[in-house]
Amino acid sequence: MYYYLYRLVSAFVTLFILSAIVFFGTVILPGDVGRRILGGLASETAVAELNRQLGTDRPVIEQYSSWLGGLLHGDLGTSFSMRVPVGELLAPALLNSAILTLLILVLLLPTAIVGGVLAALLRGRPGDHLITVSAMAATTVPDFVIGILLLLVFSLGLGWFPTSATAPAGSGFLLQLHHLLLPALCMVIGLGGYVLRMVRAGVVVALESDYTRTAFLKGLSPAAVLFRHVLRNGLMSTVAVISSQIGYIFGGLVVIEVIFNYDGIGRLIYVAANQKDFVVLQTGIIIVGSIYFMVSILGDIVHSALDPRTRFKR
């Protein structure tokens, strides 16, 4: 219990540091915000007027504290470029990204686990090499390259999937799923390779452990050894691994949402960055950071609930 309190507090501290990095990183460096938004040709007075409206004529520390104070009170600020409350932009984008992420996980977990367990069982044999080498390859190829290749083959070449992830308004569930499948697949390949290798590593440790030997020498059938002894221990660590990969998912979402033209948090941040809309950018990133910490703490809690080893340390 004490441990989770500590985790929570340290997450807040880390988020605070993060907010400072992001805020000062975007605001302080090249000086004038209004000038950057309006461009070099705008008049001095227009720039000054914009800065006054945005509050960016105030001292940076004051800007930072009012932004941070707003965040703590649930006021996410107003977008520079779109002139709407950031919350109104973020909420639907987050929902869309959550739907995509859910689909990714639903597809990814079974494949990665089955593949990882299979590779572990075949360890050292050609089948294992085939699986692990492909997984390794899939992890390291940038998501946008996977996305482009999938798009070229399955949308343009074979015509099986639409090129955009956004289904026409009022589409049914299946149609929406059809639109989302290709972008999801893109992430499943990239992240799946990573999770697969983690699953394999965990299961190999369990397979080669003394307790697995004990189970075999009790006279248990191979299936009973696998399901009752090996998987229970071997997959335990995967839970923590998956929750820590939520950050990676966000990184991938930026690219995928851009390629497949999907209105999620990734694309929102990308557009905000291009339009130099700092409030959306900073707030979006803090939200992403908070989600990262929440999920990784949640992953820890689930992990320790499942794993008695973390509960009793002699």
Binding site: I21, A273, I285
Partner: peptide, 16 residues
């Protein structure tokens, strides 16, 4: 703090 965010996202901010 740096590692809490995907590198793609952070570098995007920095490059902007």
């Amino acid at each position: 703090a740096f590692m809490a965010l995907p590198v793609v996202l952070l570098s995007m901010v920095a490059v902007v």
